[in-house]
Design a protein around this nucleic acid. Structure first.
Lengths: 140, 140
DNA sequence: CTAGACTGTTATATCTTATATCATTCATCA
DNA sequence: TGATGAATGATATAAGATATAACAGTCTAG
């Protein structure tokens, strides 16, 4: 037996996540994006005008960490901020952000397809339900 | 729909892993251990005398990062190193390390049980096979 | 015996995540 | 209406995890 921890779902969950994440970042590297960037772009695309703090809550990124994160994507010309009221700022994709997201989405879809195809066809339908269940209470 | 990314297995995999890891670290905090510490202790327990670099390869921790990692556990009196030959060093648990590991294992088992119980009973048998498949080629 | 590979180590850099604090602005309700 | 408490964005800072490059000593295969 090579890795005696392979019997523990929690451990395998962590290893699977790390391995998958590395593959995704590899695919996104040509677009100069990381997985978290694409997650935010996709969220903004699905909910245009979402506020910075709302986005942080949905993606589980703390307010303080959103600031440099958002700033970088804004600097790259992918998103823009509009003042909603005195405190909140609405996030929107720029045309360039839309374009980049389209390319990113293609790569994400390829990645998700490859990931699912690693699972035997007979089990494939159970993947998402099981992962959602493991995600647990904080899942949407 | 709250989180439009919840349809992507890869994304949910990452979120599930992060949520589970936080819970595990919470359970291990009273023992002043982190999840990676316990993984190493369990590995050494299962393969006494494993070398530092072997352990790193199995747990996917790079050689350079093993050094401070091992040093800390040695300083805590949980493991000890013995020179195998001129370069390799065999890792072993100290009696204290054994004792702490017993307590940690109880907490890990509780955690793994709670994690599995989040999954509907009818799907539970598929959890490990699916996670192993998602882990992919690098899995043991 | 020698060339190449392996081990542990040091130093360093980056990314991610977390905490604490602040000023401003909004919402509530007495 | 006016005051209190909560929310937002921001800043600074810290800690943890992960990655790369380089080095000296050691082993192994040819």
């Amino acid at each position: 037996m090579q890795d005696p921890l392979a019997r523990y779902p929690g451990y395998v969950l962590r290893r699977a996540s790390a391995a998958a994440l590395a593959k995704l970042n590899e695919r996104l590297e040509p677009l100069h994006l990381r997985h978290a960037d694409v997650a935010l772009l996709m969220l903004i695309d699905a909910q245009p005008g979402v506020s910075q703090s709302q986005a942080g809550r949905i993606l589980d990124i703390q307010r303080a960490n959103m600031v440099p994160f958002i700033a970088r994507l804004e600097k790259q010309g992918l998103i823009e901020r509009q003042q909603i009221d005195g405190r909140s700022r609405a996030l929107q994709l720029t045309p360039n952000g839309q374009s980049i997201l389209t390319q990113a989405r293609q790569r994400v879809d390829d990645y998700e397809m490859a990931l699912l195809n690693q699972v035997p066809a007979s089990l494939r339908a159970h993947v998402l339900p099981i992962l959602m269940a493991l995600w647990g209470d904080s899942a949407p």
